[in-house]
């Protein structure tokens, strides 16, 4: 199952809630303002690392670039995808939960 999050974790607790629901084998994709969730040195880094054994984390590259960020700003094991990769994630997962 794919989960998408579009809010900064400093604004809304979508990431925290999503992590209660995302199960082994799930994918989480950060888009829009949620790209800040997977940057280095935040209070959320540990939450992400604690789940990386079970869950794969992705971030939408164009949203990252738009906000002046790149791979060097990300915490470890975050895969950057473009819109084509976003489409593939939706197609590859039987269902998508968009945490709005």
């Amino acid at each position: 199952m794919l989960h998408t999050i579009n809010k900064s974790p400093f604004e809304k607790d979508s990431l925290t809630t999503c992590l209660r629901y995302a199960q082994k084998g799930a994918s989480i994709l950060f888009i829009e303002d949620a790209v800040y969730a997977c940057t280095k040195g935040t209070q959320f880094e540990k939450d992400i690392h604690d789940h990386q054994g079970d869950i794969k984390f992705y971030v939408l590259g164009p949203d990252l670039e738009a906000r002046g960020l790149d791979n060097s700003n990300l915490t470890t094991n975050i895969e950057i995808v473009d819109y084509k990769g976003f489409v593939k994630l939706v197609a590859d997962n039987e269902k998508t939960q968009n945490w709005l």
Partner: peptide
């Protein structure tokens, strides 16, 4: 809100695929 732009880019990519 970015939602409309994100959707547009997603749809474009989905069609391309």
């Amino acid at each position: 809100h970015q939602a409309s732009d994100s959707a547009y880019k997603f749809i474009e990519a989905a069609i391309a695929e």
